[in-house]
Structures are given as C-alpha cells and as structure tokens.
C-alpha cells in the first residue's frame, strides 16, 4: 500500500475530505470512502492527517505542526515517532507523497 521510495525531502499530503470520522474515547474511527477500509487512528495519527490535509509537509516540517495540534512537547512525542506515524499512514493509504515537484 505504501506509495514508494521516499526521502527526508519528500513532501507528504493527505485528503481528509474523503474520510468519514467518528471520534470515540480519543480514538478516531475512520472510514476511507476511496478504499472502503476502516481505520482506528489514535490522537497522534489523526493529528498527522489533519496537518497534512492543510498543506504539504516533509517529516521535519510536519513535526512542529503536529506537536502544536496535539498540544504536547517534543519530549513527549519525539520527531522519530511522528515520522514513523507518517509511514504507517502511508502504508494504510491515508497519506501520499506529493508528486511532480509540487
């Protein structure tokens, strides 16, 4: 499901409009109308989608915006975890690398 090779310069994006989201007890139950898949996203992965839906970001540029969204410090949520989360979302088909130098 992952979109392919990536680097630290890869820009990532997401399309939140195709997702139907129901929040239950801090879990974002998400139905992807494009794939028909159902996902359980925790608050971090949900925040990553929210950030990448509002603009294309690299791993590095996404991190501070994600931390701001979840209201936590890097000491709580290391950048490596945010990168791993983006890659997990890529595997799930919920984020994609922006193509063509966009």
């Amino acid at each position: 499901m992952a979109a392919g090779p990536y680097s630290d310069e890869t820009l990532w994006t997401a399309d939140i409009t195709r997702l139907v989201i129901r929040v239950m007890e801090d879990v974002n139950l998400t139905f992807d109308t494009l794939s028909g898949d159902t996902h359980a996203l925790n608050f971090l992965s949900a925040a990553v989608i929210q950030v990448l839906s509002s603009g294309k970001e690299t791993f590095a540029s996404a991190a501070p915006r994600v931390l701001e969204t979840i209201g936590m410090e890097e000491s709580d949520c290391p950048k490596g975890l945010i990168k791993d989360t983006i890659l997990q979302l890529d595997e799930a088909g919920l984020v994609i690398p922006a193509r063509g130098g966009e």
Binding site: D26, S35, G36, D37, T38, H39, A40, L41, N42, F43, L44, S45, I70, M72, D76, C77, P78, G80, L81, D84, T85, Q88, L89, E91, A92, L94
Partner: peptide, 26 residues
C-alpha cells in the same frame, strides 16, 4: 487525559502501531 496520551506515545515509541486498519477488499 494527558498522562494517558503520554503513555500511548511511549508505547508508540516502543513500536506499538499508531494505526489499525481493517481492509475492505474493494
């Protein structure tokens, strides 16, 4: 609430998945 989230992030850093997916077999 924050403590629970911090605990979850620690588990994530230790390798617990942040995303659980059930495929629909389109």
């Amino acid at each position: 609430f924050l403590n629970r989230r911090r605990q979850l992030l620690k588990l994530g850093a230790a390798g617990m998945p942040m995303v659980l997916t059930l495929r629909a077999s389109a």
